[in-house]
C-alpha cells in the first residue's frame, strides 16, 4: 500500500497504534493470519467469507505501512517481513482457489511465479504493477454476477500483468545503467576536450548514419 492509502485508512491507522498499542510488525502478523484464514475458508468452499477475510487482510496490509510511516517506525526488517507475509498469503489464496476448483493449479502456480518475478526485479526497477490479490475481487464479482470462470480470468490477468512488469522492470533497470554509462562517457569526452587532447578516432559511418545524414 502507498502513502495515498494512508489518508483513506487514517482512522484504523490511529486506532491500531494509539488505542490498541499495536506495532507495524504486529499488525502485519495479524493481517498474515487473517490472510491464511481467507485461504482456508476459500479452499473449504466458503468463497464469500474467504473474500471478506481477504479484504480484512488487505486492510491490515495497508494499516501496518501506514502506522510505520505516520509514527516514524519504518524499518528494513519490517518491510522484508511484510513482503514475505504478502507472498505467502498470495500463494495460499491462489492454491486455495485451485483447490476449490475455481482455477487450474497450473495457472495458480504460474500466477505465483509471475508475482515472485515482479517482486525480484522491483528493487532494481522501482516499478510495482500492484496487480496481485486486489484483482481476485474482480474474479469473485465476475463469478457471482455473470457466472463465468472469473477467478480463472483474474489469475490470468495477475500472471500476465506481473510477467509484463518483470520484463519491463529488467528493461528499465538496464536503461538506467546505459544512461549512466553514457553520461560518464560524455563527461570523460568533455574533460579530454577541455584538456586539449585529440578526440578518439570515429568509427566509419554506418549504413543508417549515411541514410539519415
Amino acid at each position: 500500500m502507498s502513502k495515498a492509502s494512508d489518508s483513506i485508512l487514517r482512522i484504523p491507522i490511529v486506532a491500531a497504534h494509539e488505542k490498541l498499542g499495536l506495532s507495524p510488525n504486529e499488525i502485519s502478523a495479524y493481517g498474515f493470519l487473517i490472510g491464511l484464514a481467507a485461504a482456508g475458508l476459500t479452499a473449504a468452499g466458503y468463497v464469500t467469507l474467504g473474500m471478506i477475510a481477504l479484504a480484512f487482510s488487505q486492510i491490515a496490509d495497508g494499516v501496518d505501512g501506514g502506522v510505520a510511516r505516520r509514527y516514524n517506525l519504518e524499518s528494513k526488517k519490517g518491510h522484508r517481513l511484510e513482503v514475505v507475509y504478502d507472498r505467502v498469503n498470495e500463494l495460499a489464496i491462489l492454491l486455495a482457489l485451485a483447490f476449490a476448483g475455481y482455477a487450474t493449479l497450473l495457472l495458480a502456480a504460474l500466477a505465483f511465479i509471475a508475482i515472485l518475478l515482479s517482486t525480484a526485479v522491483q528493487p532494481y526497477s522501482h516499478f510495482d504493477p500492484g496487480f496481485k490479490r486486489f484483482i481476485i475481487y474482480f474474479g469473485y464479482a465476475a463469478t457471482m454476477l455473470f457466472h463465468v470462470a472469473g477467478f480463472q480470468i483474474a489469475l490470468g490477468v495477475i500472471f500476465l500483468a506481473n510477467l509484463t512488469a518483470f520484463a519491463a522492470g529488467t528493461v528499465i533497470a538496464d536503461y538506467r545503467l546505459q544512461a549512466e554509462i553514457d553520461r560518464q562517457a560524455m563527461i570523460r569526452r568533455e574533460n579530454e576536450h577541455a584538456m586539449g587532447l585529440p578526440p578518439p578516432p570515429e568509427d566509419p559511418p554506418s549504413f543508417l548514419s549515411k541514410l539519415f545524414s
Partner: peptide, 19 residues
Amino acid sequence: RTPLQEPVALCWIVPLSLY
C-alpha cells in the same frame, strides 16, 4: 541490447510458453 533478448528473459518466456 536490453534484457529483452538476454538469457534472463527466459525467466518470463518459459512461464509464458507454459501459459
